[in-house]
């Protein structure tokens, strides 16, 4: 089996140093074609450095990268879509113009790029902004325009660095739909985030990095299963009683929802019984732990957020 044909991106022992600072340490990854792959990690973990190396914006000190079967992204720039962490637009250009411009930089003809830019703006709820200057756009709107600009040339592999940052819930939804659309079209999407809920909702695969080292990597379901079982609780009332529960190893109490991890041998039914008179339970659900819990456990609870 020729693996490279199924894998859109392969990293093999990639290491990057900035002076004495080890940004990415001996990282290996395989990202299958057609999947949504979430790069998770606290700020400063090495997500952006990894992505920049994939895009050939910076080069690894050691290791090998294969993007769509090529050792360097430079050779196939026109098949990649990239939304960097540093996002900006030319203020004086119009939204439609800027999308067209980036399309042309990716090798599209003027008419193709124009047509596609209009199509994308119409499809993702910005038709009336086609000829608005970028300086007049709100932050969320600007970000949408940038994402569309990175997709205008129909790339096979799309890399989005923090696509959700700074967006309101409505736009988060639009962005999520957009990523799912890409998957439906058979494209590979990599995106980075430090907000676990977003990853949980759409990722096929999760890659968790901390201090430059890979912590977890695999299909979302497997990653979650690796965390054991947990009780997901939605409740109303005074949560103080949660702390008195016995046979519990850890509780993440968020006030209205809580995640309860049991010690070995504890019966979930006992927990339910202990709680039922004290608080009003809206949901009691025995399942895999949340990504948040896995994340916190994996980085030893010492994230820099």
């Amino acid at each position: 089996m020729n693996e490279t044909q199924e894998m859109s991106l392969i990293l093999d022992g990639v290491t990057k140093r900035y002076g004495k600072f080890l940004a990415v340490d001996n990282l290996s990854l395989r990202i299958p074609t057609g999947s949504i792959y979430g790069f998770l990690g606290p700020n400063g973990a090495g997500k952006t450095t990894t992505i920049r190396m994939v895009m050939s914006i910076i080069y690894p000190d050691q290791g090998r990268i294969s993007v769509l079967g090529h050792p360097r992204a430079e050779e196939i720039k026109d098949r990649l879509g990239y939304l960097p962490e540093e996002k900006g637009l030319y203020k004086k250009m119009r939204a439609g113009e800027i999308i067209t411009y980036f399309g042309r930089l990716k090798g599209m003809t003027r008419s193709d790029a124009k047509r596609r830019s209009k199509e994308l703006l119409d499809r993702y709820g910005l038709p009336e902004w086609h000829s608005a200057r970028c300086e007049a756009l709100s932050k969320g709107m600007g970000q949408k325009v940038q994402i569309l600009a990175s997709l205008v040339h129909n790339p096979e592999l799309v890399i989005l660095d923090e696509p959700f940052s700074g967006l309101d819930p409505v736009n988060v939804e639009v962005m999520r739909d957009l990523i799912l659309d890409l998957k439906r079209e058979g494209k590979t999407v990599i995106f980075s985030t430090h907000v676990m809920e977003q990853a949980e909702q759409i990722c096929d695969f999760i890659f968790l990095i901390n201090k430059g080292k890979k912590v977890l990597d695999g299909p979302l379901s497997e990653v979650r299963k690796s965390g054991g079982e947990a009780i997901q609780l939605d409740y109303d009332g005074d949560g103080a009683c949660l702390k008195e529960l016995k046979g519990v190893s850890r509780i993440n109490d968020a006030g209205k929802t809580a995640e309860i991890f049991l010690e070995d041998g504890t019966d979930p039914q006992d927990i339910l019984r202990a709680l039922i008179d004290k608080i009003s339970i809206r949901r009691f659900d025995l399942s895999e732990p949340s990504l948040h819990e896995i994340f916190v456990r994996a980085v030893g609870g010492k994230t820099h957020e």
Binding site: R52, M55, I57, A73, E74, K77, D78, L80, Y82, L83, P84, E85, E86, K87, G88, L89, Y90, K91, F102, L105, K106, Q146, A149, S150
Partner: peptide, 14 residues
């Protein structure tokens, strides 16, 4: 540089 468009550009051009 302050426009922050450099990185996008660099993903398209050398």
């Amino acid at each position: 540089k302050s426009n922050r468009t450099i990185e996008v550009l660099l993903s398209s051009v050398a």
